[in-house]
C-alpha cells in the first residue's frame, strides 16, 4: 500500500496536523510501511464474524442526565488553563 503525497496532505488536514514538505515525504514512507504490514490481516477469513467494540460485552449502561457542578477550585484551574481568555471567556480565532 503506497500513499501519495496528496494522500498524506489530505490525511494531515483531516487529522488537523500541520506538515512541512519534509514531513510529507517521511509520512509517505512510514505510513506506507505500516499499512503494508496490515495486509497480513487479509489472510484471515472474517466472513460472518461480528466485530468487537467492547471486550467484556457490557451493554446499555445508563446514568442520570444531569450536570455536575465543578467546585470553585476546579473552576479556577480551568480558567487558568485557558491559553487565551477575556472576561472569563475563551478567546479563539474567527471561525467564519
Amino acid at each position: 500500500m503506497e500513499l501519495t503525497k496528496e494522500d498524506v496532505q489530505k490525511i494531515s488536514e483531516l487529522a488537523r496536523i500541520g506538515v512541512t514538505d519534509e514531513d510529507v515525504v517521511n509520512y509517505q514512507k512510514d505510513l506506507s510501511a505500516v499499512l503494508s504490514y496490515f495486509e497480513k490481516l487479509q489472510e484471515v477469513n472474517t466472513e460472518e464474524i461480528e466485530g468487537i467494540g467492547h471486550i467484556t460485552g457490557m451493554t446499555n449502561v445508563y446514568r442520570a442526565d444531569r450536570a455536575e457542578e465543578f467546585d470553585d477550585e476546579g473552576k479556577k484551574i480551568m480558567h487558568d488553563n485557558m491559553p487565551s481568555s477575556q472576561d472569563g471567556y475563551i478567546k479563539v480565532k474567527s471561525v467564519l
Partner: peptide, 9 residues
Amino acid sequence: KKAQKVRAL
C-alpha cells in the same frame, strides 16, 4: 472493521 473482526477471533 476488519481489525475488530480479527479481534473477535
